[in-house]
């Protein structure tokens, strides 16, 4: 009997440090519906790290209105699409890396297609979750999931997580629950993420390295300054044109997170 418990614990820990490969549908419903997308991401995770990435930048079917989306230009790491008459969206290659042991995540961010990407470093545990103790478990992809809610940078979220896959992890920044997050919805309908394919039978151990090692990183709060700096350059260039506008107003970027920016008017 005294050997049974340690063996059970060993099996339990092995089952919770397995390699994962999970595909997610990541839907953003923008205020201008022409820019709405459902992008396909992949999350790979091992016992200490994960990477959540998007590289299907040439697949225009990810636009809600894909039948009217046309490529404006196509480069290795970015493709720009025009949807309708006045909406331009960029698909960048994205990589979001998490180092669970050190509680850090790193990801790339860019404003324009010509811009050099910036690399953001943040802690992983930035959510203040409230786990529902009353609701029955929800089954997602065959796994029992518990419900949790949080408020994060301007939106309210409901997430579903399971402790049958891992003790941590989730798509995008979502993390910090005692299990792996398989589904997230914002209450305002702006964001919806759900797992479409869960692969736990991975023979080889997944090796993950920080893709932004030795890159200069900035903090999340610095994104606001970066956008304002980009505004200045844009206004300067537009004013230097022969047909310069008399007034320029910029609103956004509309994003999952609130950057703390209102409308900027340049006259």
């Amino acid at each position: 009997m005294k050997y049974i418990i340690p063996i059970f614990l060993l099996l339990f820990s092995v089952s919770h440090s397995q390699n994962l490969n999970v595909e997610f549908n990541f839907t953003i419903n923008k205020s201008n519906d022409l820019a709405s997308t459902t992008k396909k991401y992949i999350l790979e995770q091992n016992e200490s790290k994960s990477i959540f990435y998007f590289d299907l930048i040439k697949d225009k079917t990810q636009f809600k209105n894909s039948e009217i989306a046309e490529v404006v230009f196509d480069r290795d790491s970015v493709v720009a699409y025009i949807i309708g008459d006045d909406v331009i969206e960029f698909f960048f290659k994205e990589k979001h890396f998490k180092d669970f042991k050190n509680n850090f995540q790193f990801y790339n961010f860019a404003i324009g297609y010509k811009s050099k990407p910036s690399y953001i470093k943040e802690e992983i545990n930035i959510f203040n979750w409230e786990i529902s103790s009353t609701e029955k478990d929800t089954i997602i992809g065959g796994f029992n999931c518990k419900k949790a809610t949080t408020q994060f940078r301007g939106r309210n979220y409901v997430a579903y997580f399971t402790n049958e896959l891992a003790n941590e992890g989730g798509p995008w920044k979502f993390d910090g629950l005692p299990g792996f997050i398989l589904k997230v919805d914002s209450s305002d309908g702006y964001l919806s993420i759900y797992a479409t394919k869960i692969n736990t039978k991975i023979e080889k151990k997944i090796k993950l390295e920080n893709p932004y090692l030795n890159k200069k990183t900035i903090a999340f709060v610095q994104i606001k300054d970066m956008i304002l700096e980009s505004d200045k350059k844009y206004v300067k260039k537009m004013r230097s044109l022969p047909n310069a506008p008399d007034k320029i107003s910029i609103n956004g970027p509309e994003s999952i997170e609130n950057f703390g920016l209102g409308e900027r008017v340049y006259e």
Partner: peptide, 28 residues
């Protein structure tokens, strides 16, 4: 126009409208 999630609104004087504001807006 909405570009990369930001909405840019540009106001021009009339001379810009000669060729049709629509064409001007495309150029803008």
């Amino acid at each position: 126009a909405t570009i990369g999630g930001s909405t840019y609104t540009l106001e021009y004087s009339c001379f810009f409208c000669w060729g049709g504001a629509d064409n001007g807006c495309k150029a803008a």
